[in-house]
């Protein structure tokens, strides 16, 4: 009986306790930079597309929500002709980001993606592409990759020596 009265009193004291509710639309909870939210496609520091349309993200995706078509430009640079993410399927697991060899696809701390029409959840390349480099500001895939493309031959990338001439006898 006494314990009932005590619990009544304990609960009543909560009248003056601070409320823990976060009033969401006005106050927002902190989301860390590594939060797995809306997916974006980033660009190199010089503004070129990072995505090389290797399809690894689409393969890694457990719900198959990514679809893309690879193509090449006049310099031999691969890029996606279209890049489509169906966010009504996406489970925000982040496997695409882990699979990406060029840091092109990244997850961002934004989760406010509500839509009234399901079709509006299918994001095209124009919706996904952002102007900046995202979480890796100095990374430029084509500058560090040993691939030859138009305007850059083998051995001309950063921190790279010219390839060894196997026909020469010189050391």
């Amino acid at each position: 009986m006494l314990s009932l009265v005590r619990s009544l009193w304990e609960v009543f004291r909560h009248t003056f306790a601070r409320r823990v509710t976060v009033q969401y639309p006005e106050q927002k909870a902190y989301l860390s930079p590594r939060y797995r939210g809306r997916i974006v496609l980033t660009r190199d520091p010089d503004g070129g597309e990072r995505c090389v349309a290797c399809n690894l993200c689409a393969v890694a995706c457990p719900v198959a929500c990514i679809s893309l078509q690879a193509t090449e430009d006049e310099h031999g640079r691969r890029y996606p002709e279209f890049f489509r993410i169906n966010f009504s399927r996406c489970i925000f697991c982040g496997y695409c980001e882990e699979a990406c060899p060029t840091y092109a696809i990244q997850l961002t701390p934004d989760c406010e993606m509500g839509e009234y029409k399901r079709q509006n959840l299918v994001y095209e390349k124009t919706d996904l592409m952002i102007d900046g480099p995202g979480k890796y500001p100095d990374y430029n895939f084509w500058r560090v990759a040993g691939v030859a493309i138009g305007g850059k031959d083998k051995g001309q990338a950063e921190n790279e020596l010219p390839p060894v001439d196997t026909h020469s006898l010189m050391p």
Partner: peptide, 16 residues
């Protein structure tokens, strides 16, 4: 009272 009850219960559970 529907409103009063819900508000008071919330108050005692540190909600709104």
């Amino acid at each position: 009272l529907i409103w009063v009850e819900r508000r008071l219960l919330a108050l005692w559970q540190d909600r709104y």
